[in-house]
Simulated assay, not measured.
Amino acid sequence: MTQSFDAAMQAFAPALPLAVGLSGGADSTALLLACARRWPGQVQAIHVHHGLQAAADGFEQHCVRLCEGLKVPLVVQRLDARHAPGQSPEDAARQARYKAFEAVALDCKAQAAIKSIAIAQHADDQAETLLLALSRGAGVAGLAAMPARWERAGVAWHRPLLQVAAGDVRRWLGAQGQSWVEDPTNSDERYTRNRIRAQLLPALDAAFPSFRDTFARSASNAAQAAELLEDLARQDLALVGAPLHITRLQGLSRARQANVLRHWLRSTHQTTPAAAQLGELLDQVAACTTRGHRIHIKVGRGFVVRTGPILDWYNPQVLVP
């Protein structure tokens, strides 16, 4: 169920000291303000300067002034978050931001300066993430959307506002008399997430006022299913081996073959097959009944190949000549 901002913060109990990701926008400003008031002297902020727009310097200046007023230490990470060919700008910025947070986390952890990191995504962000996943035909892992807590770089990460509606965050912040900055790109509907925010969420609010709660339940159900599939994939990978023994792989149902292949490629080779690539690979595994059957299929950033009784994956760009 959605919560009020105050209720969500009251329930938030991270290990201290705590770092808060601070963009300067309303959500992260509210989160930092609430945390700094609740745990004075135990909170610091991390601001990532993406270097993507002229307004970024203004975001940093706002964060500096805010943290000075709150007497909160601020770490600023400057980076180049330009996207690679074929990558969305939003995804590139998000990945760069998490890498920057992780770098600060590792540095601070070595100094025993932080034990937890909090970031300010809220219930509307969760709904947008689920809708994005649906628009891309994602499986249950994608439909699980964003977890409220996870471990990364030896630090506990939290999203304490994940059950708070965006409007409630801004109303709370306005009541405190605290200003924030608006990212001008947030109104640019060339970006898919912005179109969802501007066009779909208001329509959903009008037609299904409880959509934030029901979407959150669906995401939670998908997360449980994804966890079960991950457990099954680990068991099947132990059975078929890595690299994969073709005959043992063929002993599994097609659905379990797909599950273990995705898990193997992601966990061992850090690559993800497209749906068409995985479908072709499954067809070739089913047809592989003779010694001379050749398998050489583009999957992710490399190729899945047959070598005798096994399937393996390689990336020709990282092979040593």
Rank of each mutant, 00 (worst) to 15 (best):
H83W: 07
P73G: 10
A103V: 01
G69I: 05
F59K: 00
A123E: 07
I117M: 08
D91H: 12
V75K: 14
K109C: 13
H83M: 04
T29N: 05
Q42L: 01
A93T: 12
P89H: 07
E60G: 11
R97Q: 12
V48M: 01
L52T: 08
A84G: 12
A55M: 00
Q77V: 14
A93W: 04
A81L: 08
I119S: 15
Q61G: 08
P40W: 10
E60M: 03
I114H: 05
D27I: 08
A110V: 01
A118S: 11
K115C: 14
A55T: 05
V75D: 12
L32E: 12
L66Q: 01
I119D: 15
H47W: 00
W39C: 07
Y98I: 04
L106A: 15
C63Y: 01
S116F: 00
R78N: 09
L32Q: 10
D124R: 06
S116K: 07
V43A: 10
R78F: 07
P85R: 05
S88K: 06
G25W: 01
E90Q: 11
S88A: 14
Q61K: 07
L52N: 05
G58W: 00
A113E: 04
G51E: 03
S116R: 04
P89S: 14
I46M: 13
H49W: 04
L106H: 12
G25R: 02
S88Y: 03
I117C: 09
D91W: 11
L52Y: 02
R65M: 00
C67T: 13
H62Y: 09
A113G: 04
S88D: 15
R38Y: 12
Q111A: 14
V76R: 02
V104G: 09
P73I: 02
H49E: 00
W39R: 01
R37H: 12
V64H: 13
P85Q: 06
L32G: 14
A36L: 05
